[in-house]
Computed example of a mutant assay.
Amino acid sequence: MGAHRRGFAARAARVEMPGGPLQIHWADDDHVLMTGAVRTAFRGTVNLADMAHD
């Protein structure tokens, strides 16, 4: 998004990642869509109560 705002990239780009290519599309409504191959990168648990703010 910052690259587009600075004129370095279009609203769509292909990014080469270690797991394969990732298509990025920054929509006119400012939603960012990422499309590419999917595989598990992490498995774990999170206790949401531990993340609560007072």
Rank of each mutant, 00 (worst) to 15 (best):
P21G: 14
T45G: 12
A9K: 02
G2F: 06
R43T: 15
I24P: 00
L22A: 13
A37D: 11
A3I: 00
P21K: 07
R43C: 05
G2A: 12
E16G: 00
V15F: 04
A10Y: 01
A41T: 15
R5S: 08
F8M: 13
T45Q: 12
R43F: 06
V15Q: 05
A27M: 13
V15P: 01
L33P: 01
P18K: 10
P21F: 05
L33C: 08
P18C: 12
D28P: 09
G20K: 08
E16Q: 06
V15W: 04
E16N: 02
G20V: 06
V15M: 11
T40D: 13
G7N: 07
Q23F: 09
G2W: 02
V15I: 15
D28K: 11
L33Y: 05
F42L: 15
F8D: 14
R39A: 14
I24R: 01
G36L: 07
T35W: 00
G7W: 03
W26E: 00
G2V: 11
H25P: 00
G19A: 14
A13K: 03
A41I: 15
R11I: 01
F8A: 11
H4Y: 06
D28L: 09
V15D: 04
D28Q: 15
M34V: 08
A12S: 14
M17I: 05
F42N: 09
A27F: 01
F42K: 14
G19D: 12
P18L: 10
I24C: 05
F42P: 01
H31Q: 13
G2Y: 04
M17Q: 12
A9L: 05
R11D: 08
